[in-house]
Design a protein around this nucleic acid. Structure first.
Lengths: 150, 150
DNA sequence: CCCCTCATGTCAACCAGTTGACAACCGGCA
DNA sequence: TGCCGGTTGTCAACTGGTTGACATGAGGGG
């Protein structure tokens, strides 16, 4: 039987991530997961923990637990929101911002170069399919319980 | 700035997985991670722990730890290899095999239907891009340390 | 003004991975 | 035969997620 498309997707993503992880460790001294977290925090300055968690695709408890070490390592600042006694404002330090921008640019450039090196690949075609897929998934009804099987 | 293609890829995969997870829980009583593990075990009968781990994309310790509960739940059998005192032969029970086949077929069918429902999407185009990408990644040189940056 | 509800961040307990170490076992070779 | 290196499965310690509970602060009606 031929490999399901979704399995193929996972394989590709896993290898892509493994590549990115070694680059990030070697040249930037961060883990892939940490990079993603910082990248999420970089989308908007002054996010609170809840928004950051949503943006990074994890629970707020997980986001909260990541803060202390990243603050200690000079990657983030977490300052109390003056307008709200409990909320935190989370910002990247200039160093972390530079890291995220540089690494993102580099990884994306290498990805584009890899695609360009093969005549059968075309980043815009891939993007179109992925964007269509993303859109199709957003407008997807929740799965209907089939209540068959086991 | 426009979203990097690799980030888009992650978003799509995350949503796809979330959908699959709810289907698998609702209708098959397994977690997405468990389903993947069983699917890996189903590729070849009689795999040993090491091969299964490689096939499932995890360490052998992790694979080893999963066994007892899956055996207890009647999903797997782990029998000592007669030709090798330490090696285990791991097989799916008929029930687990049926589960994997049924669920795989269903999820892939729904995926194809979603693609077919949008005129801008084409599964064969997507597959071609992904397969080319997979191949490009296999023949990729290890990342060269740039030794720049922080 | 108080109270009720909701949002926010954190904590404890748990779960499922990882790495590194290790005992048991295989197989080849002196 | 006995030893020795490599393989195999498992264990302990750790990491980084999850959920559910919780204290605290915000904000809007009685």
């Amino acid at each position: 039987m031929t490999e399901p498309t979704t399995f193929l997707l996972h394989r590709v993503v896993a290898e892509l991530d493994a590549y990115a992880d070694t680059v990030l460790r070697q040249d930037y001294g961060v883990t892939f997961a940490t990079f993603n977290f910082l990248a999420a925090a970089s989308t908007l300055p002054g996010l609170d923990v809840t928004a950051l968690a949503r943006c990074a695709g994890m629970s707020k408890a997980a986001a909260s637990k990541r803060l202390p070490t990243l603050v200690r390592d000079g990657m983030l600042t977490a300052s109390p929101d003056p307008h709200h006694g409990r909320r935190l404002r989370i910002d990247l330090t200039p160093r972390a911002l530079a890291l995220v921008e540089h690494a993102t640019e580099r990884l994306e450039r290498e990805f584009a170069a890899m695609l360009a090196s093969r005549p059968d690949l075309d980043e815009s075609v891939l993007r179109d399919q992925l964007e269509g897929l993303a859109h199709a998934l957003e407008t997807l009804p929740d799965p209907t319980p089939t209540s068959g099987e086991s």
